[in-house]
Computed example of a mutant assay.
Amino acid sequence: MKSKNKVMIILTIIVSVFVAGCSNQDDKAFEVPFDGTMDHVHGLGYAGNDEGLYFASHTGLKIYRNGKWFKTSENFNDYMGFAAVNKGFYSSGHPGEDSNLPNPIGLQRSFDGGKTLEKIGFEGESDFHVMAVGFSSHDIILLNEQKNSKLVEGIYLSEDNGESWIEVTASGLDGDILSLSIHPSNSKYIAAATNSGVYLSSDKGGNFTLISEREAVGTAVFFNEENLYFVSYDKNPKFEKFNIDNDEIENMYLPELYDDGPVFIAQNPKDTKQLAIYTIKGQAYVSSDYSETWEQILIDNRVK
């Protein structure tokens, strides 16, 4: 009996190792090396807990991790809206050629790196280009540009993962909205970049105040727990940090950009010194020293 039990234990271990090995191979197979050009990047962020910097592109996800580039081997969806969260990402857009999702895909989320998508709502109805999700709260703020079965045109906030929506009044917000951001855990803070500047709300979007220079165009906004990072453009791009507790503004640094400026900002939640930007002309840079120096990782949307 003892010998038989020992054999059974060994077999169980072997099977477990084999299954685990197959699982790891499957995990690796979903991401394959990437050396090419990505089209129409619509979002950027450190999604989940794997240190990867995710780019939402016209042909699916591209990932920059530990100095190497990867792409997914399936799910080539056109992720038009994209928001990284602590467990993965939320997105909107259109299905890829390999997908059986309706067009548009509405609002979806993935907590496994993009292998599977979970429906939040609006499938076959809406494509949200401008959206943001709280990194830890998962509260959703979005711009609805066309009427659907639930929402008319406007800016909406959901604090229950899309079960219900509240239209925000956005008093004081001026211009066409180019980008939105919502605080990681406290959804009373919402920021908007418009062609009239960068605006901040501290009452869940009820009222907004201009925090950038009045003549500048707002191009990018990003929250961490303490600060709002934003970029505005007036002849040249300007990268700044706004402390939400004391309203102090501090200048950050940018790489040399010629007739160009960041449209997306990301920060690694595991290492706040790590920043990333993506620009209008398809350049991407990463910094490991809080913007003091930058390394270019995309040149005209082609990996470096």
Score class of each variant (00 low, 15 high):
Asp259Tyr: 02
Asp259Pro: 00
Thr169Ala: 10
Gly197Glu: 07
Leu107Phe: 13
Lys188Met: 14
Phe242Gly: 06
Lys4Gln: 15
Glu74Tyr: 07
Asp35Leu: 10
Leu254Ile: 02
Trp165His: 10
Lys188Cys: 11
Asn161Glu: 09
Lys87Val: 00
Glu123His: 02
Phe264Thr: 07
His40Pro: 02
Gly60Asp: 00
Pro269Lys: 07
Thr279Met: 05
Ser92Cys: 11
Gly206Met: 04
Phe89Asn: 11
Ala193Pro: 06
Ile105Tyr: 09
Leu143Phe: 08
Lys147Ser: 14
Ile14Gln: 03
Lys6Glu: 09
His42Gln: 05
Ser149Tyr: 10
Ile297Ala: 04
Ser171Thr: 12
Asn268Phe: 09
Ser187Arg: 11
Gly52Ile: 08
Ile177Asp: 08
Ser57His: 02
Tyr253Gly: 00
Asp247Ile: 02
Phe222Thr: 06
Lys2Arg: 11
Glu97Trp: 10
Glu295Asp: 14
Asn148Cys: 11
Val17Tyr: 05
Ala132Pro: 03
Ile277Lys: 00
Ala276Pro: 12
Gly96Thr: 05
Asn195Pro: 04
Phe70Arg: 02
Glu74Ala: 08
Asp50Ile: 09
Lys270Asp: 13
Lys115Phe: 03
Leu117Ala: 05
Asn251Phe: 05
Val217Met: 09
Gln146Pro: 00
Pro184Tyr: 01
Asp112Met: 03
Ala170Lys: 01
Thr194Gly: 06
Glu74Val: 00
Asn268Met: 07
Asp139Lys: 14
Thr272Pro: 01
Glu31Leu: 12
Glu118Asn: 07
Asn103Phe: 00
Tyr189Ile: 07
Ile10Glu: 02
Asn148His: 01
Asp112Ile: 04
Ala47Val: 06
Phe128Ala: 13
Leu142Asn: 07
Ile14Val: 14
Ser126Asp: 09
Leu101Met: 13
Ser3Gln: 15
Ser201Leu: 05
Asp174Lys: 14
Leu53Val: 13
Val17Ser: 06
Gly162Cys: 01
Gly175Glu: 06
Ser196Ala: 15
Glu226Ser: 15
Glu145Phe: 04
Ala56Met: 10
Pro104Met: 01
Val19Phe: 01
Ala20Phe: 08
Lys2Val: 06
Gly21Ser: 02
Ala20Pro: 00
Asn24Pro: 01
Lys6Ser: 13
Gly93Phe: 06
Ala216Cys: 11
Pro269Asn: 07
Ala192Arg: 13
Ala20Gln: 05
Asn66Leu: 08
Lys270Leu: 07
Thr219His: 13
Leu117Trp: 05
Leu180Asp: 03
Ile166Val: 14
Gly114Leu: 02
Phe230Asn: 01
Met80Asn: 01
Val152Tyr: 09
Asp127Ser: 12
Ala83His: 13
Gly81Cys: 05
Pro237Leu: 09
Asn251Asp: 13
Ser212Ala: 04
Ser196Thr: 08
Val41Met: 10
Asp247Lys: 11
Lys62Pro: 00
Lys270Tyr: 09
Phe208Ile: 12
Phe82Asn: 08
Ile297Met: 06
Phe208Gly: 11
Val85Glu: 01
Ser202Thr: 14
Ser181Phe: 03
Lys6Arg: 11
His58Cys: 09
Lys28Met: 08
Glu153Phe: 07
Phe223Cys: 04
Met8Gly: 00
Asp98Ser: 04
Tyr229Gln: 11
Leu210Glu: 11
